[in-house]
């Protein structure tokens, strides 16, 4: 897998600093599974967080009591954490499988029109919306604009839009000035994870009329 489109350093910083909402964090973590280069960047930015924490100057206040409370909480719970059980093979990255409760075969796809399907990943966390899109080979996604940033991680196949070609593992970061019409490449259906800060606004009138009905 040759990844050509990576999250910006600022986006990885926000992930490493714990400042991203669940949806964008899901897209970034899933990219990290597929991209050793950005994993290295993340490690470095976590080391930066560790450094900044270690440099913070604090005072010992009431530490004895706080430590005793920790000891008694430890005594009352499981002693060691067990690493997550992993299957022998998987298509989707682990963070996405956790959010879906399953792998690619368990997605309850809903019809989106023009042969495309989608599934909104439920989340209680903030206004960001994460969803999976399935675009049939060679077909377009309805034209849309979005409020705020849209992150799109390609998980299978590839798509192109006016700005470039996005294959498996690529993460596209598009701001709200971009009105784009991505097309899946002709050889394979394309599956991607799209995360928006606010609901997508579709431009073509049938999609716009259907939008409230489809819940997108």
């Amino acid at each position: 897998m040759t990844i050509r489109h990576h999250p910006s350093a600022e986006l990885i910083l926000d992930y490493a600093a714990g400042g991203l909402a669940h949806g964008p964090a899901l897209a970034v973590a899933s990219h990290l599974v597929l991209c050793p280069h950005c994993r290295r960047t993340t490690q470095r930015l976590e080391a930066l967080g560790g450094r900044l924490m270690a440099d913070a100057v604090g005072s010992q206040n009431d530490s004895g009591r706080a430590f005793d409370a920790i000891l008694s909480k430890i005594a009352g719970g499981a002693d060691e954490s067990v690493p997550a059980l992993q299957p022998a093979t998987a298509v989707f990255p682990h963070p996405l499988r956790m959010a879906l409760g399953g792998d690619i075969g368990t997605v309850p796809w809903k019809r989106l029109g023009m042969g495309a399907y989608h599934y909104i990943i439920p989340s209680d966390d903030g206004p960001a919306t994460a969803r999976l899109l399935l675009i049939p080979a060679g077909r377009p996604v309805p034209v849309h604009t979005h409020v705020g940033t849209e992150l799109t991680l390609t998980l299978r196949g590839a798509y192109t839009d006016a700005t470039g070609h996005f294959a498996c593992g690529d993460l596209q970061e598009a701001d709200d000035s971009l009105t784009h019409q991505p097309h899946a490449t002709p050889d394979e259906d394309c599956i991607c994870l799209a995360v928006t800060e606010a609901p997508l606004r579709f431009k073509s009138w049938p999609a716009r009329i259907l939008q409230p009905l489809l819940g997108i």
């Binding site: 669940h22 599974v33 597929l34 690493p83 992993q86 299957p87 998987a90 963070p95």
Partner: peptide, 20 residues
């Protein structure tokens, strides 16, 4: 602070692309 867990990379994930 949140109801959902933080999405994290798991070193044992079979989907993990290893360093070259």
């Amino acid at each position: 602070l949140r109801k959902t867990f933080r999405p994290e990379v798991d070193a044992n994930d079979p989907a993990l692309v290893p360093e070259p």
